[in-house]
Design a protein around this nucleic acid. Structure first.
Lengths: 203, 203
DNA sequence: CGCGAATGTTTACGATGCAAACATGGCGAT
DNA sequence: ATCGCCATGTTTGCATCGTAAACATTCGCG
């Protein structure tokens, strides 16, 4: 696929027949549409990438395959966000920080998030599952250190569920009438603390 | 092909021009499609109800309105399931029983469940939110009795999130590689117990 | 230089959601 | 009983979507 001599991307070069790296461009286009809040149709993605509606099929089996690739990237992004939050957290507060980051990521990219954890069963299914496990593991690792006494696989699953459920409830607006801004108001954080049984709220 | 689609109440009259109670028939048709695991298109619902593709618009503003009505009914069904589980539970085990019932409901009606708590924002949005609160309240009420010491609004939200997140993870297959049958294996129950800190497993 | 394979394009088909115009017939006012 | 209103259904039409099939273009290797 890739070769040494790269006439890869020069600015004033008109769109050649061969796009150079459509595969990545399609991914970016889909991500961009997602970021704008719209669910990306295959045709819209192609349009945005400046190619014909059928072009994507040279790189992805079907719409679902493209979306799955996007979802994978989104999951990786979530993992990165969790790791960053974990690293930046005060001692003993890393789990809470990860939880908040998780929900914030969902709020910042609601459509993407739905794609990531919704019916993304298609082609790359296994890839998605594995990536999701990676995400869980980031949380799990920190959990094992901050709460070694209570820690069990079941407890880890419970924690993940709590955080994931919270994210779902928030982005679907199910908490809107209870609290218009569950993240900003600290409700999310308090709910996680309540479940973990660590009420130190230290402003 | 026109067949005598299941008319619930009437006897042998031919499909009259006026359907009698299309509104309800459409709901049932959508529910039936959902039960068969397919996402109901407006046209498919109309087909199943034995009317023309445009007929539903006399009763629902658009596809989303129909789906929202279906979602509402699904949420009511969940509430009923929770109440039943609560009533049948052994003393002190009602919260766990509700949690398991919640996840089981999701597993039994995955497409419906996604509809209920997915982007069901449209028309009846408020109705959906309120109904969801009703569901939460069933859990919340029992929670206040079984765990009066830890009980706070934040704790209640946390519990709901845990259960809801568990349901999401299970129906999307995110736990499939960890455990192919999280409900049957008891993993769901154990995760909830771990979060609640009540490890009595009393087979 | 030439040719095969990779990559894009065009055309076409069936499905979908919905707008607009038309048809039917239940039912209250006369 | 009759008539006419209008709620309820139907037909037609259009834009969009996913994707199959056939065609066009160019890359890279012999």
């Amino acid at each position: 696929m890739r070769q040494g001599t790269d006439r890869a991307v020069s600015e004033l070069e008109k769109p050649a027949y061969h796009h150079g790296d459509l595969r990545a461009a399609l991914l970016d286009a889909a991500l961009a549409l997602l970021a704008e809040g719209q669910e990306p149709s295959l045709r819209a993605v192609a349009r945005r990438a400046g190619v014909s509606p059928m072009a994507p099929y040279r790189h992805y089996a079907d719409r679902e395959a493209l979306l799955a690739a996007v979802a994978l990237r989104g999951i990786e992004g979530l993992k990165v966000a969790l790791e960053a939050a974990d690293a930046a957290a005060a001692p003993g507060e890393a789990v809470i920080a990860q939880a908040v980051a998780y929900v914030r990521y969902a709020c910042d990219h609601p459509v993407l998030f739905r794609l990531m954890f919704g019916p993304a069963r298609p082609t790359v299914e296994h890839g998605i599952c594995a990536a999701a496990q990676d995400v869980k593991d980031v949380l799990l690792t920190r959990l094992a250190r901050e709460a070694p006494d209570r820690f069990t696989p079941d407890f880890a699953l419970g924690c993940w569920s709590t955080i994931h459920g919270l994210a779902q409830l928030v982005i679907e607006g199910l908490l809107a009438e209870t609290d218009p801004d569950p993240l900003g108001s600290g409700m999310v954080e308090r709910a996680v603390r309540a479940m973990l049984g660590c009420p130190e709220s230290r402003v």
